[in-house]
């Protein structure tokens, strides 16, 4: 699945200017996370048609990039996330960051994972029988 990341300058209104543009284009955010440092932020989110959205963002002079991330469905119960992380850790794969969202039906949870070695992580999870979400299923 492809995630969009947008650079945010540390000043009032920079988050709003991205969100306002997404509203204008009628883009619905499926999941998002905001990483912040002392002087800048990175807004990461999952949307439908990410290629189209990033093109619009770049046209409007936002600094943005597309990244392949893994989106995994996890059981909505204690230990649901730890089993997935355990599998990756067991294979020596480190996680750069992750964030979670609930499924549209409210039945389960999903975790967006950014790992260093995307291809290997995908194979590891698939062979462990963990379902990965593709772009279309959202």
């Amino acid at each position: 699945m492809k995630q969009i990341s947008v650079f945010l300058e540390n000043r009032p209104g920079s988050l709003f200017s991205v969100l306002d543009r997404l509203r204008e284009w009628e883009v619905n955010l499926r999941a998002l996370s905001l990483a912040d440092t002392a002087d800048f932020g990175v807004l990461r989110f999952i949307v439908k048609k990410p290629e189209k959205v990033i093109e619009l963002l770049k046209r409007d002079n936002f600094t943005a990039t597309l990244t392949e991330v893994l989106t995994v469905g996890i059981a909505d119960q204690p230990g649901g996330l730890s089993s997935v992380v355990g599998i990756l850790t067991g294979e020596g794969l480190s996680i750069e960051y992750l964030y979670a969202f609930v499924s549209p039906e409210g039945k389960g949870a999903y975790v967006v994972l950014r790992v260093e070695d995307y291809d290997k992580a995908r194979i590891v999870l698939e062979s462990a029988g963990i379902p990965l979400l593709g772009d279309l299923s959202l």
Binding site: S5, F7, T37, T65, T67, Y97, R114
Partner: peptide, 14 residues
């Protein structure tokens, strides 16, 4: 920050 130096990971810019 241009697209050439930006990445989704905070550590790149840092």
């Amino acid at each position: 920050v241009s697209n050439n130096i930006f990445s989704d990971e905070v550590k790149t810019l840092e």
